[in-house]
Amino acid sequence: MKLIKLLKPVLTGAFLTAMLAGCGQTDSSSEGQKSAGEPQKVENQVVNVYTARHYEADQAVYDKFTEETGIKVNVVKGEAEELIERLKREGESTQADLFITVDGGVLGNAKNNDILQPVQSDIIDKNVPAHFRDKEDYWIGMSTRARVIVYAKDRVKPEELSTYEALTDEKWKGKVLARSSTSLYNQSLLASFIELNGEEMAEQWAQGIVNNFARQPDGGDRDQAKAIAAGVGDVAIMNTYYVGLLLNSEEPEEQKVGESIGVFFPNQETNGTHVNISGIGLTKYSKNPENATKLIEYMTGVEAQEYLSAQNFEFPVNPEAKMPELLQSWGEFNMQELNFDTLGEYNQQAIQIFNKTGWK
């Protein structure tokens, strides 16, 4: 089993900002060769990004990259599938250099739709372990998030929890919360079960969760946490980073919600906890491939990784990056071992299972 390693205590926000300000990556050629010394600023250079990640932290990293290199980052935001279709439609005329999204299956779909090209860079290979990169280098991971069991601290003891499958037990009837089956997060979770356990067992799991719903799926992951705090249910299936966002919210009520719930990493003795990935790919018809490669190198470097993790509470892919204290406090955990591309391969089967079992 691969372990997500927990490192030393997190740096303070001020120290992180100071470090990020000086985190310029070393230059690289189109062949990915590393140059010595500080990055050289260039004039009138750009890199154009199509992204399905809509986080302020990402923009802050783009801004620092521009400050360090002189390369301007132009950003177009949208839904992942819409951006893939746009890239297919634009073809050779596209101005996009990079495609960024939040799901391994979508990254696989982008590759299969022939809108990406391989990236060659010794720096990237050093920054990102092979299991967080496409085996043919068509995409590179930039962060991960675990889909875990979140529980009411005042009503559930962590020792009562064990696996995703155990949530189908009779003891959890009327107590399980989850968002809609239209959520890509849930679709990829179920797709991972199809890959690891087979379609029949995946369907049994989905049916068991539906049978134990505290209510019909409603809202996003934050809303599941709020429903636990309100006593609607006792456990929920959620992404870890939402817990961090709740605890660090500017709204006192959201902070209280975050404080009332605990995080449990399921399946530590079996297949491991489901982890999904945010990733970045070089577009097939990029007009600025060298600049685009430099931005990937920058975003996967230690300082930028630490900043993104501290702001978004995602797990960094760079093993040298230190994580926030909150993430460290959750401890080490085993993650599923599977090819992220399979999340896309089994997406339609997952949707069919959701429809068949009544997971709306």
Score class of each variant (00 low, 15 high):
residue 115 I to T: 02
residue 316 P to G: 02
residue 195 E to L: 03
residue 224 Q to C: 11
residue 84 I to D: 02
residue 97 D to H: 09
residue 88 K to L: 13
residue 54 H to L: 07
residue 233 G to A: 02
residue 8 K to N: 09
residue 7 L to I: 13
residue 154 D to W: 00
residue 175 K to S: 11
residue 273 T to K: 11
residue 112 N to V: 03
residue 345 E to M: 11
residue 323 M to C: 01
residue 307 Y to G: 10
residue 63 D to G: 00
residue 218 D to S: 10
residue 317 V to A: 01
residue 151 Y to D: 10
residue 235 V to P: 11
residue 223 D to P: 03
residue 131 H to V: 09
residue 262 G to T: 14
residue 15 F to H: 07
residue 328 Q to M: 07
residue 120 Q to T: 12
residue 322 K to N: 14
residue 264 F to P: 13
residue 252 P to D: 13
residue 327 L to N: 02
residue 128 V to Y: 07
residue 318 N to T: 05
residue 276 N to V: 08
residue 89 R to T: 12
residue 177 L to I: 12
residue 238 M to P: 06
residue 122 D to H: 02
residue 14 A to Y: 06
residue 273 T to C: 14
residue 209 I to F: 04
residue 248 N to L: 02
residue 342 T to I: 08
residue 200 E to Y: 06
residue 8 K to E: 12
residue 74 N to L: 10
residue 159 E to F: 01
residue 131 H to G: 04
residue 81 E to K: 13
residue 295 L to V: 09
residue 24 G to P: 04
residue 187 Q to D: 00
residue 338 L to C: 04
residue 115 I to E: 05
residue 190 L to M: 11
residue 276 N to I: 11
residue 16 L to C: 01
residue 185 Y to H: 12
residue 224 Q to V: 06
residue 156 V to M: 08
residue 216 Q to Y: 08
residue 176 V to G: 03
residue 153 K to S: 06
residue 242 Y to C: 07
residue 110 A to K: 02
residue 144 T to A: 05
residue 111 K to L: 01
residue 132 F to S: 05
residue 236 A to G: 09
residue 288 N to S: 09
residue 268 Q to H: 05
residue 342 T to D: 13
residue 352 Q to S: 14
residue 202 A to F: 04
residue 91 G to S: 06
residue 244 G to V: 08
residue 3 L to W: 13
